[in-house]
Nucleic acid binder design. Structure first.
Lengths: 190, 190
DNA sequence: TGTACATCAGTGAACGCGCGTTCACTGATGTAC
DNA sequence: TGTACATCAGTGAACGCGCGTTCACTGATGTAC
């Protein structure tokens, strides 16, 4: 049942996208390769035609998740400039919709503590996602930014990732909502 | 080989403290009960004399970790008042020493994304730790604080947890150090 | 205070299960002539 | 362009392993008289 090159490439993408969703929903260790493959409509045996190991998939899924989120954020806010852009990012990132849909959201918040213990390739993918978020926050510019702007953007991204993670931990819905709202209001004045 | 009540209580404490350290170091799912028991100087069979399940230990360990960190933070800063106290908290929390010793540090940063998917008891323990950090930041007072102070403290704790987590993810040591420093400097002016 | 017995903390082997990984096999795709 | 053969994506069974949990057993502790 050999598949064409196009089909093979499409299958690989499907596996990565599925893994990116499942890992963010249920955790890296809690999600088995058989789970991912089944959710992608395949049997687990074929996995090793596409990746050397689970770690390879984790890195690819992390990169895809970071890419998906940052691309979405960039597109959704590219009409705005300066403070308005930062506010638009904060509003989206710190929304209840984002909090309640970790599978489609930021991998840094959904998997942060697990990524910190992952291998180099996975941490590099996450690092790129972080850098891109900082750039999006402070406005398109690469490293031509003023140092103060860059520092502020770094703090803002840290606060957003921490707030989203904590809003998912906290038991009381009111406290959870307050974490998102108060962080958003603070960052909007930044 | 029955042990005295005092010994039994001491053993339970030892298991919980050991688990709190191992979970923060290696992750909840990555740490087996046999690992914890061996590190506590016991065999794994005896575990169920102390807990109903691994989840029970996770909740107890999370509570102990949160308690340990907040007690230490409170003691280390109880001489200071107002802004000086907040600065002292930020300096300790956002230190390289804390970043490099997750086993003795904040469970919210070491296990945040895993706790978000844990059962209610574990999330309640983490929530108490979060609340206590907010109180420590804003100065001893319970809920008698002004709303603005409380909101600022909430944002500060989110930023600290996010920054510490990200400083452990990021590959470049310079960027990791910058995350800690810039967040600290920003919070000190808050 | 002393004795007889029930309790139970800790041991070590065993349980079923799901994990990541491997492998023989299939048949459609890709390629060399 | 057509043919013959090598490649390889995907299947499904199997592998060894470590996991959480259970259990029969031990002997010191706790307790009732």
């Amino acid at each position: 049942m050999r598949k064409s090159k196009d089909e093979t490439a499409a299958t690989r993408v499907r596996i990565v996208e599925t893994a990116a969703r499942e890992f963010r929903r249920n955790g890296i260790h809690e999600t088995g390769l058989a789970d991912v493959m089944a959710a992608a409509g395949l049997t687990h045996g074929g996995f090793y035609r596409h990746f050397d190991s689970k770690d390879g998939l984790v890195a690819a899924a992390c990169a895809a998740a970071a890419d998906g989120l940052t691309t979405m954020m960039a597109k959704a806010t590219d009409a705005q400039r300066g403070r308005a852009r930062a506010q638009a990012v904060a509003k989206r990132y710190l929304s209840k919709a984002h909090r309640d849909a970790p599978g489609d959201g930021c991998p840094l918040a959904a998997l942060g503590s697990e990524i910190a213990r992952s291998d180099r390739a996975t941490r590099e993918a996450a690092t790129r996602g972080f850098s891109r978020l900082v750039e999006i926050w402070s406005g398109q510019g690469g490293d031509s930014e003023a140092d103060t702007t860059r520092a502020k953007a770094t703090v803002a991204v840290c606060a957003m990732v921490g707030a989203l993670t904590l809003s998912r931990i906290v038991v009381d819905p009111k406290v959870s909502a307050d974490i998102l709202t108060q962080t958003r209001e603070h960052l909007e004045k930044l």
